[in-house]
Simulated scan of single mutants.
Amino acid sequence: MKKSLFALAFTLLSAPAFAFPVTVDSCGKPLTFDAAPKRVVVNDINMSEMAFALGLQSSMVGVTGITGWYKLDDAFIKQQGSIPELAPKNPTLENIIAVQPDFFFAGWNYGMRIGGEVTPDTLAPYGIKTLELTESCVHLDKNRPAASMELLYGDIEKLGKIFGKEAEAEKLISGWKTQLAQIKKKVGTNSGTRVFLYDSGEDKPFTAGKFAIPSAMISEAGGVNIMDDLESSWATTSWETVASRNPQFLVLLDYQDDVGYKKLLDFLKSHPAMKETDAVKNERFVALRYAELTPGPANIEAIEKIAKAMHPEAF
């Protein structure tokens, strides 16, 4: 009997501790959970991939804001499985509460809009707690640090804590950091390439500024975002500004529609100022998907793609 009790005590002491309640930060506000959420809705492809990376599918009762914007690859479809999409674009309050969730993972301009129908405050009366994507918090508070890979790491850590999967989160982050260290080692001193990210827009280009994760990704790949002084995350600038900074390399957002990134490249080649820039004249670019350029697991391979295209000699 004593042996059995000792063995039980040892087992309990050596088991991983997922103690609740837990509290995480969500855009500067504490968010407390007495237990792991059981009915989860996640907005957007990048945040869904975060949830999938931690194996949260069994708790997910819906995703939103995916097929109305993007074509899905087989890997995403397989991970999504039977989880229904509640709204192809931005969800309504009705879309969300219809499945009686207790947790919503979204961001500002990632399924939620300031003063809109779906916000943490409008969901709270229904017993729904909202974790806000950290990159998007700049829309509430401009006094934030410039983008770094902590935007991804921090959100994965929070999800791990909320769902009792801290060990899994730590393993993911450790692996990503190892991959990035290997990329940096290869790139070495080949740094400082001037990079412009072109998302969309013809009258004015829509791009990634100081607070958007592509700025950090470009840095990790050995480049400099020429718009890293734009005091925003995703915003418009002027073609005059971009051309005057003469980018040497382009990151083109490929929405995988009928024309994809080629439409962007063709436009740049015809633009009177941009066609004279080094990047356009030399056709130096990489095309990346939306999920690769918004906070999510796909960021790591995307950084390697940027680095390889920018510094092929290093690989």
Rank of each mutant, 00 (worst) to 15 (best):
residue 25 D to A: 04
residue 282 N to R: 15
residue 252 L to S: 06
residue 297 P to Y: 02
residue 36 A to W: 01
residue 192 G to Q: 04
residue 103 F to N: 06
residue 248 Q to V: 10
residue 145 P to D: 07
residue 270 S to G: 13
residue 146 A to Q: 13
residue 231 E to H: 13
residue 246 N to C: 06
residue 53 A to Y: 06
residue 176 W to M: 00
residue 130 T to N: 05
residue 226 I to K: 04
residue 123 L to V: 11
residue 10 F to P: 04
residue 246 N to H: 04
residue 303 I to M: 13
residue 149 M to G: 03
residue 161 K to H: 00
residue 14 S to F: 13
residue 144 R to I: 09
residue 216 A to G: 06
residue 224 V to C: 00
residue 110 Y to V: 05
residue 142 K to G: 08
residue 29 K to H: 10
residue 102 D to F: 04
residue 291 A to F: 07
residue 134 T to Q: 12
residue 101 P to W: 08
residue 120 P to C: 03
residue 151 L to R: 01
residue 136 S to P: 05
residue 179 Q to A: 01
residue 288 L to M: 11
residue 208 A to Q: 07
residue 216 A to N: 04
residue 231 E to Y: 10
residue 167 A to S: 13
residue 159 L to Y: 02
residue 20 F to L: 01
residue 113 R to C: 00
residue 203 D to S: 13
residue 184 K to M: 03
residue 112 M to I: 09
residue 283 E to N: 15
residue 110 Y to M: 12
residue 303 I to K: 05
residue 162 I to P: 05
residue 112 M to A: 09
residue 311 H to K: 11
residue 197 L to Y: 15
residue 248 Q to M: 05
residue 119 T to L: 02
residue 262 K to S: 07
residue 201 G to V: 11
residue 100 Q to V: 01
residue 95 N to K: 07
residue 200 S to W: 15
residue 218 I to Y: 09
residue 124 A to E: 12
residue 96 I to W: 01
residue 211 F to D: 09
residue 18 F to G: 03
residue 53 A to V: 01
residue 103 F to K: 10
residue 145 P to W: 02
residue 137 C to A: 11
residue 72 L to N: 13
residue 308 K to Y: 06
residue 150 E to C: 04
residue 101 P to G: 02
residue 136 S to A: 14
residue 59 S to N: 12
residue 194 R to D: 12
residue 247 P to G: 10
residue 122 T to I: 02
residue 79 Q to P: 03
residue 117 E to L: 00
residue 61 V to Y: 14
residue 268 L to E: 08
residue 128 I to C: 06
residue 91 P to F: 11
residue 257 D to H: 06
residue 296 G to F: 05
residue 12 L to S: 12
residue 13 L to I: 14
residue 261 Y to R: 04
residue 24 V to P: 03
residue 89 K to W: 00
residue 74 D to W: 01
residue 261 Y to F: 15
residue 70 Y to H: 12
residue 178 T to Y: 00
residue 154 G to N: 15
residue 43 N to R: 03
residue 291 A to C: 09
residue 220 E to Q: 11
residue 207 T to N: 11
residue 198 Y to E: 09
residue 206 F to V: 11
residue 298 A to D: 14
residue 299 N to I: 07
residue 104 F to G: 02
residue 79 Q to N: 12
residue 79 Q to V: 01
residue 95 N to W: 08
residue 26 S to R: 00
residue 62 G to I: 11
residue 312 P to H: 10
residue 225 N to A: 03
residue 82 S to Q: 11
residue 231 E to R: 08
residue 66 I to V: 14
residue 187 V to T: 10
residue 62 G to Y: 12
residue 269 K to M: 08
residue 79 Q to R: 08
residue 144 R to E: 10
residue 73 D to I: 01
residue 230 L to Q: 10
residue 80 Q to E: 02
residue 47 M to D: 04
residue 252 L to V: 12
residue 271 H to D: 09
residue 227 M to W: 09
residue 238 S to P: 08
residue 272 P to E: 13
residue 152 L to G: 02
residue 73 D to V: 00
residue 257 D to F: 05
residue 146 A to E: 13
residue 263 K to T: 07
residue 38 K to S: 11
residue 306 I to A: 15
residue 177 K to V: 00
residue 290 Y to P: 03
residue 159 L to E: 04
residue 293 L to A: 14
residue 61 V to G: 11
